[in-house]
Write a protein that binds this DNA or RNA. Structure first.
Lengths: 190, 190
DNA sequence: GTCTATACTTTGATAGAC
DNA sequence: GTCTATCAAAGTATAGAC
């Protein structure tokens, strides 16, 4: 299945939103990076920038969710899997010169009080991440409430570490947040 | 000392940046909220939006740093102080209808890869918070390295919780992050 | 249906009247 | 020195040629 023009537009949006945020990215810039004519963006997204933004948030969120399986499936246990997820985030930050962090967080903060449809899209994504992580922790033997709290704490630590790492241009916060998440998980597993 | 026009401009910028981000806030909107004529913004900030942004980041960061003293000075011990800081953040989120989170994080993510002067300003702010929190933890008896790691972990948890709370319109992540920070601190204090 | 050209608004920034 | 009027560029969105 070849990549369609619509796919290229969403991919370009995802990359630019991550680097510059939603408000800081223009429609012209998006089609230029997607090698698409300007009009096609409104052909595929009649709702304009907001519709494209919502679609981009959902696609980026689903892609990032797949990373969870990518790290946790081959891991010998859930603790090791979480440990390697944070280590992988640190590698990505360093290799991208601190450009690639969370694909959702920047837009989430920008739109939380400015666009209800976009805020709802970011909420759906975060909910899906929380549910997926909580399911993994429940599979490891934790009760539902503990699993959910651990999932939220782990994702909060990850998100906050992305903020600090990109601002400080250092992976130290990601290493600390990973250690905290692992310690909390170990303690809960007894 | 009466509030000057320059102060009002910085205050208005801080409020708008928190709600809409840096790119999403216009110079016209800032002077309108500050009840100042348009020209005065370039009189006080010849460097334009970037200079105003840097000043706003520094002032907002210093103000938020004062909150640390406000919560930790009257607390009977550092654990209780941290606990109440997170509880206060949850109250602020709820009372502001999830509009008031971290005054720096939105801009920090936006500018991390787009403006080196602004990124450096956000880094200075986060460094000052880390140093202040680490000093508090060291005063409580921890060695420097442990105190620093706890400070970074606590601030990362706080920042990530702000992201999740504003997106989900729930204070649950802040409550979880507060419990994690308190647990880590208690464990380190022995 | 794809794409170009353009409409209209708003942006950051400046010049110059007072 | 304070403020108004305006600039050139970039913003989103649309109309219509092909």
């Amino acid at each position: 299945m070849p990549e369609t023009t619509k796919d290229r537009i969403v991919d370009a949006s995802a990359e630019l939103f991550q680097l510059q945020g939603y408000a800081g990215t223009g429609m012209r810039q998006i089609v230029a990076r997607a090698s698409a004519p300007f009009g096609s963006i409104y052909h595929h997204f009649p709702g304009g920038k907001e519709e494209l933004g919502a679609e981009t948030i959902r696609v980026s969120g689903a892609l990032y969710l797949q990373l969870l399986d990518l790290f946790l499936d081959p891991a010998p246990d859930v603790v090791t899997g979480v440990e390697e997820f944070f280590a992988g985030a640190a590698v990505t930050l360093r290799e991208s010169d601190y450009a690639e962090g969370c694909p959702i967080a920047t837009v989430a903060l920008e739109v939380a009080s400015t666009s209800e449809p976009l805020r709802a899209a970011t909420a759906e994504v975060f909910d899906s991440w929380i549910d997926a992580a909580a399911a993994r922790f429940a599979d490891a033997g934790l009760d539902a409430a503990t699993a959910r709290a651990l999932a939220i704490g782990t994702i909060a630590g990850l998100e906050g570490a992305f903020v600090l790492c990109r601002a400080l241009r250092s992976t130290e916060p990601m290493e600390v947040a990973g250690a905290v998440a692992v310690a909390q998980l170990r303690a809960a597993l007894g």
